[in-house]
């Protein structure tokens, strides 16, 4: 069996896996990082979104061996200790989650959006999130949360620049 090594949430990990092991399964089953969820088999729902080398990807559509040598961030690695990432905080403040199942992927995807586009319009947020399905919220409060996170991250950057 191939051996894979990668950095997950800042920690070096190395394990033997079958070639067919998906990154999502590797994270959930081998590393017990169960925040990454599986909601479909056709790469549509986005519950499994994580960052690989800083970019959001669907971990159910990537083999663990394809992420060999990469740096992976999951929802568990987003907060700094007890301090929620501004996106997480905004989801809580804006009631951007209900059952919580799509939330990890939704948050990871939204964080990637702000890396590209720090001040997205409503339309841009809605279009970016087309790969993340939420059945609970109707997206209204998710869009609100992403906008709030964008504002608060801009504020943080401005404060840091001073």
């Amino acid at each position: 069996m191939p051996n894979v090594s990668m950095t997950v949430n800042g920690k070096q990990v190395s394990q033997e896996v079958e070639g067919r092991t998906l990154l999502s399964a590797f994270l959930r089953e081998k590393l017990d990082l169960t925040g990454t969820h599986i909601g479909c088999d056709t790469s549509q729902c986005g519950a499994c979104v994580v960052h690989v080398d800083g970019k959001s990807v669907k971990s159910c559509t990537l083999l663990a061996v394809q992420a060999d040598g990469a740096s992976v961030t999951t929802i568990e690695g987003l907060a700094q200790g007890d301090d929620l990432h501004p996106m997480q905080a905004a989801f809580r403040d804006c009631h951007g989650l209900q059952c919580g199942f799509c939330t990890p992927g939704m948050v990871m995807s939204a964080v990637d959006l702000l890396q590209h586009n720090p001040d997205p319009s409503d339309r841009e947020i809605r279009e970016w999130l087309e790969g993340n399905i939420c059945r609970c919220t109707g997206y209204h409060n998710i869009v609100k949360a992403v906008k709030q996170a964008a504002q608060s991250m801009k504020g943080q950057q401005a404060a840091a620049a001073e």
Binding site: V57, L113, W128, E130, G131
Partner: peptide
């Protein structure tokens, strides 16, 4: 094409 995550891969 696809969605943001598909475009990244």
């Amino acid at each position: 094409i696809g969605d943001a995550q598909v475009r990244n891969r």
